[in-house]
């Protein structure tokens, strides 16, 4: 019968309207009186009596609840995590970056007895303005020194602010993404909990002792 299809369309849209929105509001969610009360874990009546000022605010639609999207722990974010203690300055990341956006400048380090095996990192610039977050730099890092981050909120006013410098990498709190790091995943680590990881816990293998290093790099040569 003519008109049935049109009617069906109306029914579907009305069903969707009753089901309510599925969108996630970012960075905070506007809640009404009921929503605010639910967030605080009280009944709306309790909420009205105990915190009338907030209740009025909520009823007027001004109450907000922080609402973050549930990101996957493997999310490849733009704030790279770098563990200097693990980095040897081999520049594999720079070499295998498909876009060539990583710049590394090293100088010989005098601090370690086995010279030539670890370098001072003078420059470690990652130009995330051109980065496509493929993660190949992380994949090829032989010592698990570089990790993807989990952030996505680095809006800046100038392009040059999009270059992550070595100082920024050094001072940053490290919450590495578990992307390509099964060892992190095995410990059920979630980067979005905000908990940072020390360098000793993020590698695939134990940090070699001095003896091992000597054996590998000095004695065998």
């Amino acid at each position: 019968m003519i008109g049935l299809g049109l009617l069906n369309g109306l029914i579907v849209t009305m069903k969707a309207a009753i089901r309510g929105p599925v969108t996630v509001q970012y960075p905070d969610r506007r809640v009404g009186l009921l929503g605010a009360a639910r967030e605080l874990g009280m009944s709306p009546f309790q909420f009205l009596v105990k915190r009338p000022k907030d209740a009025v605010k909520a009823a007027a639609g001004f109450a907000t609840v922080e609402d973050k999207i549930a990101q996957g722990p493997r999310f490849r974010g733009q704030d790279f995590n770098w563990y200097e203690d693990r980095c040897t300055g081999c520049a594999s990341c720079a070499k295998f970056c498909p876009l060539g956006i990583i710049e590394i400048v090293t100088s010989p380090s005098d601090t370690l007895k086995s010279q030539g095996e670890v370098y001072n990192i003078d420059v470690f610039d990652i130009d995330i303005g051109r980065c496509m977050f493929c993660g190949i730099c992380v994949e090829v890092c032989p010592y698990d020194a570089l990790h993807m981050g989990s952030g996505f909120e680095l809006g800046t006013y100038e392009r040059k602010d999009l270059v992550i410098s070595v100082d920024a990498l050094r001072t940053k709190k490290n919450t590495p993404s578990t992307w390509f790091r099964p060892q992190l995943e095995e410990t059920a680590y979630n980067p979005h909990s905000g908990e940072s990881r020390p360098w000793t816990e993020v590698g695939r293998h134990e940090q070699p002792t001095d003896e091992e290093l000597n054996e590998r790099w000095v004695d065998e040569r």
Binding site: Q71, G72, P73, R74, F75, R76, M132, F133, C134, G135, I136, E139, M148, S177, W179, F180, P182, E185
Partner: peptide, 28 residues
């Protein structure tokens, strides 16, 4: 969202690698 769980990216996945995928899918 499932792609994000699998490979950390939503659109530009780069998930596949020669001989398989780069990382097993998470249990979630």
């Amino acid at each position: 969202d499932m792609f994000e769980l699998m490979c950390g990216a939503r659109i530009t996945n780069s998930y596949h690698r020669p001989s398989g995928v780069f990382q097993d899918a998470p249990p979630e």
